[in-house]
Amino acid sequence: MGSFLARARRVRAVVVMAVCTLAAAVALPAAPAQAAAHDPVLFVHGVWTDGPTTWTDMIADFEREGWDPASLQMMNYNTAQSLEDSAAEVVDEVAALRARTGAAKVDIVAHSMGAPMVRWYLKFLGGTQYVDDFVSIAGGNHGGIGTEFCAPVQPSCQDMLMYSPFLQALNSGDETPGPTTYTALWSSCDEFLNPDSTALLDGADNIWAGCLGHVTMVNWPQNFVRTENAVA
């Protein structure tokens, strides 16, 4: 009899422990979900009279949305030199950003003249293996930028003329090569681009931003949202 009671007590203890363990497991709060890691972003300015400060407001917007400031990098370059020379500098900028952050790939956001320059890097300098997403904002992708905005003798200005050898080579064949995803934001009131459709890219997600000026395109709040969505 005593042996039977002892066994019953042991069985009951085991059952109680199992029930308590199950209840504790159910009561434990779920582990917080880890925020999705973002690719680092390289910002490339355009406009001959402009510079990296083009991106001050947009980068502040990214930081406000929780992006790591260390992953947001502005590029500077000599806007008078040929766009092929500038594209070669993108190689080093991307390599430096990847090395600093440990990321396998980066995203690139470019404005105006910076867009075709980055596209040269993507198409001819192996960039598509290192760039996940590319966003062109008011990019002069097919020329049409008036020479009144730069000295006609500057190589970059010559490259941006419609039907220049640079643009003919860039736009021959696939305009959006490789596994990189392409987004092009364009305005129907861009005073720098003529025609406005020069900003579009075959194979890209072409998004009309409304009637905005060339420089305003960078700082327009909705364009930040569109850009963040494109690189998220």
Rank of each mutant, 00 (worst) to 15 (best):
L167W: 06
W220M: 00
V131M: 10
P152E: 14
I207L: 14
V106R: 03
L161C: 05
H45E: 01
V41E: 03
L170V: 06
Y130F: 13
T21I: 15
A104G: 15
V106E: 06
H38T: 14
G127Q: 04
A18P: 05
W55Q: 02
Y121H: 13
L22N: 00
L200N: 06
P29M: 10
V94A: 00
M75C: 03
A25C: 11
Q81L: 14
V91D: 14
A88Y: 09
L212V: 15
S188F: 06
V14H: 11
F62Q: 05
F149N: 11
L97C: 07
N223W: 09
V231C: 01
R100Q: 15
G51Y: 01
V135H: 06
Y163S: 15
L83S: 11
A232V: 07
F62C: 04
G203E: 03
A80I: 13
E191S: 07
L5T: 00
V15A: 14
L28T: 11
R119T: 04
C150V: 10
T180Y: 06
V109K: 05
S164I: 05
Q222P: 00
L161P: 02
Q129L: 07
W186A: 02
G114N: 02
V131S: 08
D205W: 07
N229V: 04
S136N: 01
N76W: 14
K123F: 02
Y77L: 11
T128K: 05
G144I: 06
T49R: 10
I145N: 06
T56Q: 10
A30M: 07
G210V: 09
E93I: 09
D68R: 04
E93P: 01
I137W: 02
V106T: 06
K105L: 13
V47T: 11
C20Q: 09
V153M: 14
C211F: 06
A232H: 11
L193H: 02
E175C: 08
L5M: 11
A60F: 03
V90T: 12
A87I: 10
A13L: 05
F43K: 05
D196T: 11
V15G: 08
N206C: 09
N141F: 12
L22Y: 01
S71D: 08
G126V: 11
A6C: 12
H45Y: 07
Y77K: 06
A99D: 12
D68A: 10
A199C: 05
V109P: 01
A18L: 14
Q158L: 07
T54D: 05
A25S: 08
G213S: 03
V231S: 01
Q34N: 10
A60I: 12
L22E: 08
Y77M: 01
P195R: 03
G210I: 08
R226Y: 00
Y121M: 10
A70D: 14
D61N: 12
S172V: 13
L170P: 05
F224R: 00
Y121E: 04
V231G: 02
G140D: 05
T128G: 08
V14W: 12
T56K: 11
A33D: 01
T180P: 07
E84Q: 12
G146Q: 12
A35S: 09
A209C: 14
A24T: 15
I137G: 05
S156Q: 04
D85V: 11
A96P: 12
G178H: 13
D39E: 08
E228D: 03
V231P: 01
P40C: 07
D133K: 15
L83Y: 02
S86W: 08
G114M: 00
L161D: 12
A25M: 13
R7T: 03
A87C: 05
A110S: 06
Q168N: 13
I59K: 05
L161I: 13
